[in-house]
């Protein structure tokens, strides 16, 4: 029986292993230590590793994220938790100016091996301020890497790679996914003895021939649901591509899929204007125009702040039925 663990447990395992792997790894954030993590991602780690490696920060994102960036210049590898990625906006100058541009402005003399991780998703009945999805905003900035795993396997493999990466990696999770399980082999089952998923490589989660559903984060799960409906009810065999990493981007896997299926939809829980899908669809148009049998479509969150009321908020996010309907319009 293959081992099944939750996305949350997978992250925790990854963090725990990297704490063991490198003495310079330190986890800093609000409630990460004694409280065991607001979403329990870091549960038990403070008890195991103590005050030096797990640090409870005051509610002071600009301060502690900036502090982590400064410490990373001197070789510390801080893994900063944002309780919600929405709070990145109060640390925006540190994350966009200092982490992203110091290397360039120093002519390559400085680098910032920092990870900033936390949930970046809507759909949890907490209102607009806590429902931001800023992956497109940070991926817009050269110098930054943006990662968004959709399952437990990638969550573990990518967090470990992110911590070992020598550039700033902004790691965007989902509270909705924290409890979802997936098959994640234990280290003794692995040839290399550990699970490292490279940043910048997409994954075909479901092979298909008729349409490419390309997505990142939780939208991958929604796309997989839609693909099953398309197969069962409409005899359409959809391929689902999970970007996993938004920047760097695995354009090869995207284009290979589109060249095979000749149709593509980008699905994301991000907003439409200059969203990740806008970038991807532009690239498909430029690189695979002659392979397309239909316009590339985009399905995003509604172009409005997150609605508080749960039944309406749910409708703002991409739904499997919506994906099916839009897919049928071009198949």
């Amino acid at each position: 029986m293959p081992r099944q663990i939750t996305y949350r447990e997978a992250l925790r395992e990854g963090l725990d292993e990297e704490l063991a792997h490198d003495d310079n790894v330190v986890i800093i954030g609000e409630e990460v230590a004694e409280y065991n993590g607001a979403y329990k991602v870091t549960e038990g780690l403070w008890e195991k590793w103590g005050d030096k490696r797990l640090v409870d920060a005051p509610i002071s994102e600009a301060g502690f994220i900036g502090m982590g960036i400064g410490a990373s210049m001197l070789g510390i590898r801080p893994v900063m938790e944002l309780m919600f990625y929405s709070f990145a906006y109060v640390a925006f100058d540190q994350m966009m100016n200092n982490a992203a541009t110091c290397r360039y402005m120093s002519g390559g003399l400085v680098n910032c091996p920092i990870v900033v991780r936390g949930p970046a998703n809507g759909g949890t009945n907490v209102g607009a301020t806590h429902s931001h999805t800023p992956e497109n905003i940070f991926a817009n900035m050269p110098g930054l890497k943006v990662v968004s795993p959709s399952d437990a396997y990638d969550a573990k493999g990518l967090i470990k790679s992110a911590i070992r990466d020598n550039d700033p990696v902004y790691f965007m999770e989902s509270t909705v996914l924290y409890g979802q399980t997936a098959e994640v082999p234990s280290n003794d089952e692995l040839e290399d003895g550990e699970l490292l998923v490279p940043i910048g490589r997409a994954k075909v989660k479901r092979e298909g021939t008729d349409i490419s559903l390309i997505a990142h984060g939780r939208a991958v799960i929604t796309s997989l649901e839609a693909a099953e409906i398309l197969a069962e009810k409409h005899n359409i065999n959809a391929e689902v591509v999970d970007l996993r990493s938004i920047r760097p981007l695995d354009e090869q896997t995207i284009m290979e899929s589109v060249r095979k299926t000749h149709r593509a939809i980008y699905i994301e829980e991000n907003k439409p204007f200059c969203g990740v899908g806008a970038q991807i669809s532009s690239m498909i148009m430029e690189q695979a125009f002659d392979d397309l049998d239909a316009p590339v479509l985009r399905i995003t969150s509604a172009d409005a702040p997150a609605f508080y009321s749960p039944p309406i908020e749910k409708l703002q996010l991409p739904q499997a039925d919506e994906i099916v309907e839009r897919a049928l319009s071009i198949c």
């Binding site: 600009a62 301060g63 900036g66 502090m67 210049m73 070789g75 510390i76 200092n98």
Partner: peptide
């Protein structure tokens, strides 16, 4: 903007 970085250098 450099003031949190200064704290970070000291932290390191």
């Amino acid at each position: 903007g450099q003031t949190p970085l200064g704290a970070g250098l000291a932290y390191a």
